[in-house]
Design a protein around this nucleic acid. Structure first.
Length: 246
DNA sequence: AAGAGAAGCAACCGCCAGAAG
DNA sequence: TCTTCTGGCGGTTGCTTCTCT
């Protein structure tokens, strides 16, 4: 059944790549391509490396047109906006930033941007109770939304289609408007604060398009209320969920 | 000048969805 | 149809470099 094991883990080298290994991998891929099989690649080249390690090395370091460091102000803004809208989906962010790798963006966010934007008081995983259902990423995004709301509006993800991920499907204007109204007016028919509140069917009728089950919003709304987030942010979160980004 | 702590970053780990046998 | 592997991803680790005292 199945396939042969990918590599002999006792016989593969780990740790930093040497210039010789880099050169061998680069030369082989430039000449022959990956052949669609990373696992077989190190055997063909004669490298004592796991295929996954070769893939990572190529994608993050050896691939042509890779940029390292020196993130621009514009890139900072894009990363920040995307983090607010899609969270820690580094590969999607990398797709929006030519020459940047997901690993680079992730490192840049974790070591610099996060501290710069949120300060040193950001939540760590160890600070939270295990039962809390909001991820650290979600809370950081809420904090950024608050900051964004109190500062300029140019970072707003939904105001700038350039920042939308390639798979982004714009929400209909009618749906967005209706959701804005609903979240602002708090219709008595809809209890946004309870998982047992409005069904997606009820909202669907009001909005005129298909919506997912809203029960998952309970934590977000509770958090929003506790942190005085705006209704604009409120509806944005619904929109993001609707298009599958959260 | 030396040691400690912080920051930066490359690479590994482990999980998941889809593919292959 | 089931089992196992591959590719891809985000999270985490640990080594190196930098900064502060």
């Amino acid at each position: 059944m199945g396939r042969a094991p990918c590599c002999d883990k006792d016989n593969v080298k780990k740790g930093p790549w040497s210039p010789e290994e880099d050169a061998e991998l680069k030369a082989y891929i430039e000449q022959h391509g990956t052949g669609g099989n990373w696992i077989a690649l190190p055997h063909k080249i004669g490298l004592k490396r796991c295929g996954k390690s070769c893939r990572l090395r190529w994608l993050n370091y050896l691939r042509p047109n890779i940029k390292h460091g020196g993130f621009t102000e514009e890139e900072d803004q894009i990363i920040c906006s995307l983090y607010i809208s899609i969270g820690s989906r580094w590969s999607i962010m990398a797709a929006q930033l030519p020459g940047r790798t997901d690993n680079d963006i992730k490192n840049y966010w974790n070591t610099r941007l996060k501290k710069r934007l949120l300060g040193k008081g950001t939540l760590r995983r160890s600070d939270r109770e295990p039962s809390e259902s909001l991820s650290v990423s979600a809370i950081e995004r809420m904090q950024l939304l608050q900051l964004q709301g109190s500062q300029s509006s140019h970072l707003t993800f939904y105001n700038n289609p350039v920042l939308w991920p390639k798979h982004h499907v714009p929400v209909s204007h009618a749906a967005a408007t209706t959701l804005d109204v609903l979240s602002g007016v708090q219709s008595p028919a809809l209890d946004f604060h309870s998982p047992s509140g409005a069904s997606s069917g009820e909202l669907q009728d009001l909005v005129g398009c298909q919506l997912p089950d809203l029960s998952c919003y309970s934590d977000i709304y509770s958090f929003q209320e506790a942190n005085n987030l705006t209704t604009e942010n409120h509806s944005m979160i619904i929109q993001e969920y609707e298009i599958g980004l959260i």
